[in-house]
Amino acid sequence: MGWFKRKTEGITTSTKDKKETPEGLWYKCPKCQTVVTSEDHASNFFVCERCSYHERIGSEEYFQILFDDGAYKELDKGLASSDPLKFEDTKKYVDRIKESQAKTNLTDAIRTAYGKCDGQDLVIAAMDFKFIGGSLGSVMGEKIARAIDKAIKTNSAFMIISKSGGARMMEAGLSLMQMAKVSAKLNLLSEAKLPYISFLTDPTTGGVTASFAMLGDINIAEPDALIGFAGPRVVKETIGRDLPDGFQKSEFLLEHGFLDYIVERHNLKKEVSHSIRLFTS
């Protein structure tokens, strides 16, 4: 026998009086399940207050964090993918692009911008993972190339925020050569003696890791980000056994000598602007 007993059976609240919870008001951390209001979560840089899990964020959020007063001038906004290969798998590439554009309100997987970071000139190219996995295609290559031109022209520091599954298969050879294209441009940036900060966030794999993401004057990363050449599933299949804990995470890369430092999002602006100052003072 229970201690309490319902006097009337069933739900008696009328539909009219039901209280709706608005969507997106709460954020639940996927790692520790802590629930906070979305507002608090955003003001905490989209980092879990309890376990400091860094939620994946996009270019806009990074621009807001890094540029003074969140003010910046976006570069080459209109640059979009064409489909020279007429690529079609289970879906046409052009349709895939259109769908992604409609869904994300972005033109491609990267945005580039120019602004000030603690008063210092900075050009940032930041990827959006939600646009076809932040994949590297002709648009990303061209946008980064032009952003580097801008940095050289304005004598600014340059930063790439990587968040990508790698090269965009639907552009085949063209996407492969974007790795070479950006690396070529970085040679020119280097000749101009301007600092290039490569910031790797979760996840950075494939062709992006095998080119410009690893070529920073300094390579820095967010905590616990997956960073690798081959994806963990492929490595696991190759070696035929389970991967060690923490494999291909930022801390692992730092330990193996491929990162200069790991930075929490709270300190991102402070550390980046300090790095730039050390390069240029």
Binding site: L79, A80, S81, S82, P84, G137, S138, V139, G141, E142, A145, L174, M177, Q178, A180, K181, S183, A184, K185, N187, L188
Partner: peptide, 10 residues
Amino acid sequence: IDKFCNMGVT
């Protein structure tokens, strides 16, 4: 360098 910089179609 120039050759590789010109690769891609947008």
